[in-house]
Design a protein around this nucleic acid. Structure first.
Lengths: 331, 331
DNA sequence: TTACAGTATGGAATCGATTCCACGAAAGGC
DNA sequence: GCCTTTCGTGGAATCGATTCCATACTGTAA
């Protein structure tokens, strides 16, 4: 591989001048500029990133840690983040934590060792020692989607309260009174926020305040199924079910179908926080609050870059949209 | 940030010895080992990756270039690749090419500059100059899922012929004779392989060889819809439709519904190359050949690591499985 | 003509690690 | 008890870039 020394030799100039040309310094003559560029091209020279990073004390690399890139929300977010980062000359290191604190810590170590310029973090559960160490070292960090207690970093996430309000408005429009709400874990800020917003808003939207209709799972299909089962076992017979995330709605739907039969199930309307492409294809189709993962990813990178540049970006809640898939009037 | 010099000073040893301890060289005494490790811990020392990379001429970073991480196939593949890489001490740089050659070239430049130790490439279309340059520089590269003409790199991908055979067997079992096949672009090796396998196998499975039943799109829903439309416009009335990838099947299904009505559509059986989670929820449910993206990602990384170690890994086609979602007997 | 400002350049120090080399001390062989 | 390995260590060179500093040169003003 050709180094800057080779380029300098071929151009008949010093490495100093060569470096200045290659990094676009104005302190260069047109003559040396053309000679250096020609030599670089002929040799197929590519800057040695690690060497440059060593000297400049920055890597132009951002770390992105998500819990699982396979989730549509995160893959959309990762796509947007990568595009936005690239548009600003940054490259993205990707890692999955798989909801496992040990793995998250290992990743944070690797990111720290790579000397990423900043971190996009979609945290799982609580604060970890590594994270604390990085914060102390003043590594620029932004949080995506979920907050972490005790971590004072800008947060870019869904407007959970606004999303729940959209769902409540829809439930009211559809004339539902007996609505089952299947929430997520209180330990996730998303779970808590959606739950709180629902409790705070239901009465104003003409929805029963009977707490028998409310239960919570773990944001996964099976946990949600158990929660839904508990609701039905309490004798509640809702006309609509509101799942606090995509998997939750699915799990709830499965149980309703199994316990009440497909016919009864198709008389019940479902609404989900989190839209999944194929909710249009279920029967009945599921209406949903759609997260704007693209905008969250983009905003997260922008905020992080601002932080890297020494600015003080502010957290932002990105608005949701509502996808109404209900057919016809309710009887 | 603490450097190895700080650690050495604190431990009262030279940087040489300190480095040996930290990188686990056997040439160290138990005494200096414990002193160095204690000092490192106290200072919160983290190896400076770029500096290490500069000296060692390797980065322990792999580049992963996919066309779009939002596709379920790629996000599953990326997840598996990242996990496998991490298990071997590597970190993964992720980039999306968005089916855009210019963007792919920009990414390859960035990867080259970062001096990734190897490249996992899910190519779009043909060879690009950058790729050629990297191959000439003998950068270890493996291809994922699609081949590129003229590029002699190990390929880890789906067993397209085997998958088509599974679909053909199913079509035969279900007693279909008039089967519409909506293919993908011939310029993609996946499109060409699936198409060829279908043509080669249909007769032996009792399927009509009428070419009016066959058309091709661009592997996207809209292009597939147009292809399906052409088939119907030719007067063909298939009892089953075989889509050469997930989006293709969806586009075809949409057109069948729109043109023949939902009732007629539900009498037609669909089978897709590429399984998508929610094919279970469509009506009628879609049977599918499932790609083992996880295994492809894992095998790709293993092959790449072998290549990096100077070995000569061999290409591998990963077997598909078949998800039969057909209900009951056909009349 | 002399002095001075402004540019372009070469040379050298530097970033933070790894690794080669040489040296002293301890251990083993006769 | 002397000679030869072996082992641990310190010091220095090195990786490939960037950037500071000093210098040479150009052109302008007094």
């Amino acid at each position: 591989m050709a180094t800057i020394k080779d380029v300098a030799a071929r151009a008949g100039l010093s490495v100093g001048t060569t470096s200045r040309v290659l990094s676009g310094s104005p302190q260069t003559s047109p003559d040396s500029r053309s000679r250096v560029l020609a030599a670089a091209k002929e040799l197929g020279y590519v800057t040695h990133g690690p060497a440059r990073s060593l000297r400049r004390a920055r890597t132009d690399v951002l770390g992105l840690l998500v819990s699982d890139i396979r989730s549509p929300f995160f893959s959309e977010l990762a796509h947007a983040a990568e595009q936005e980062a690239r548009a600003h000359g940054y490259t993205v290191l990707l890692a999955n934590a798989n909801e496992d604190a040990a793995q998250a810590d290992a990743v944070l170590d690797a990111f720290a060792s790579q000397r990423v310029d900043g971190l996009l973090l979609s945290p799982q559960g609580p604060q970890t020692p590594r994270l604390e160490a990085l914060l102390e070292k003043r590594l620029p960090i932004v949080l995506l989607n979920r907050a972490i207690e005790g971590v004072d970093a800008p947060l870019y996430g869904t407007d959970n309260a606004g999303g729940v309000a959209q769902a409540l408005a829809w439930l009211q429009r559809r004339g539902h009174r007996d609505v089952a709400f299947i929430g997520g874990p209180e330990s996730f800020s998303t779970g808590a926020e959606r739950h709180d917003a629902y409790l705070a808003g239901r009465e104003a939207h003409g929805i029963s305040t009977d707490d028998d209709l409310i239960d919570a799972g773990d944001f996964l299909a099976d946990g949600a199924a158990e929660a839904m089962l508990r609701v039905l076992d309490r004798g509640a017979r809702p006309t609509a079910v509101f799942g606090a995330n995509g998997q939750t709605t699915l799990g709830a739907m499965r149980v309703v179908r199994e316990r009440l039969g497909a016919e009864a199930a198709s008389g019940i309307e479902f609404v989900s926080f989190d839209d999944i492409e194929w909710f249009a294809y279920t029967s009945p189709p599921i209406s949903a609050v759609r997260n704007d993962a693209t905008e969250i990813g983009r905003a997260g990178v922008q905020g992080l870059l601002e932080l890297i540049d020494g600015g003080t970006p502010t957290s932002r809640r990105v608005a949701t949209s509502f996808i109404d898939r209900a057919k016809g009037d309710r009887a």
